[in-house]
């Protein structure tokens, strides 16, 4: 069974990129547009890994991570932050919120896929 990834990003371009890259890598991808959308879809999707942007309307990445960790749907699912931000303070904030790892955009396809494999262990 292929690994199921919930990818959350408010940018259509980024979502489309993730969809193509991850699908090509053999993952099962479900897309969400912001934190609220991701959280709403979470029970149905039951992802093996969440990939989330930080800057998003409605609910940002920090909010999402905290909500997932505090919820009872999938509190232990690995969450990778995928963002253009690279400031150490933000990384620390994401870590505090419960993020599993951090990938800086623009991502290169190969490292994105290998990082996902590594965190979710395929």
């Amino acid at each position: 069974m292929s690994l199921r990834i919930l990818a959350i990003d408010d940018s259509l371009t980024m979502r489309e990129m993730l969809r193509q890259t991850l699908t090509e890598a053999g993952f099962d991808v479900v897309l969400a547009e912001d934190g609220i959308d991701g959280l709403t879809q979470l029970p149905d999707v039951a992802p093996d890994l969440i990939l989330t942007d930080l800057n998003m309307p409605n609910m940002d990445g920090f909010g999402l991570i905290e909500a997932v960790r505090a919820g009872d749907v999938a509190p232990r699912v690995p969450i990778l932050v995928l963002t253009t931000e690279s400031a150490a303070t933000l990384k620390e904030r994401a870590r505090q919120a419960g993020a599993t790892g951090w990938i800086t955009k623009p991502f290169d396809e190969h490292s994105l896929v290998s990082t996902i494999r590594r965190v979710a262990a395929v």
């Binding site: 199921r4 479900v30 959308d37």
Partner: peptide, 24 residues
């Protein structure tokens, strides 16, 4: 020791239904 670790959460019945409803 970690019964609800991520690896164990995946087989949920809703999984097939969600594939069709990828966006709101």
């Amino acid at each position: 020791k970690a019964p609800d670790a991520p690896a164990a959460t995946s087989p949920q019945p809703a999984a097939s239904a969600s594939a069709a409803s990828t966006g709101p």
